[in-house]
C-alpha cells in the first residue's frame, strides 16, 4: 500500500472533508490503485525532461492594464449566505 488510511485522513483534514471509516478505507484503496497505475511512468528515463506544468503548448496570454466595471456591491453580495453593511459576514475570526 502506497496510500495509508492515515494519509487519507491527513489530506481530508487539509481539505476540510469529514469522512467516515468506510469512506476512508474506500478512498485509501482507490487512491492507492491510481498512484500504482501512474507509477508505471517511473519505468521511463525522464532525467533530461523538464516536469510538465501544462498540457497545452500555449504561453504568454496577457491582458493590458485597463480597468473594467466591477459587479457592484449589491450583485457581489447577492448570493452571500450572510452579510452586514457592504461586507460578507463570517464567524468571528480572532487573531
Amino acid at each position: 500500500m502506497k496510500i495509508s488510511v492515515a494519509d487519507v485522513e491527513y489530506v481530508a483534514r487539509l481539505a476540510r472533508l469529514e469522512l467516515n471509516k468506510a469512506e476512508t478505507d474506500l478512498f485509501a484503496g482507490q487512491m492507492d490503485a491510481i498512484l500504482g497505475y501512474v507509477e508505471k511512468l517511473n519505468e521511463l528515463d525522464t532525467a533530461d525532461i523538464r516536469p510538465t506544468s501544462h498540457a497545452v503548448p500555449v504561453e504568454n496570454a496577457f491582458r493590458e492594464d485597463a480597468t473594467r466595471p466591477s459587479l457592484g456591491v449589491a450583485k457581489a453580495l447577492a448570493n452571500a449566505p450572510d452579510k452586514a453593511d457592504s461586507f460578507y459576514r463570517v464567524p468571528k475570526v480572532i487573531e
Binding site: A84, D85, S86, F87, Y88, V90, P91
Partner: peptide, 11 residues
C-alpha cells in the same frame, strides 16, 4: 460595523 458585533466582515 453594525451587524458585525459577533462576526467578522470580509472586504
Amino acid at each position: 460595523v453594525p451587524g458585525l458585533e459577533n462576526g467578522s466582515g470580509v472586504d
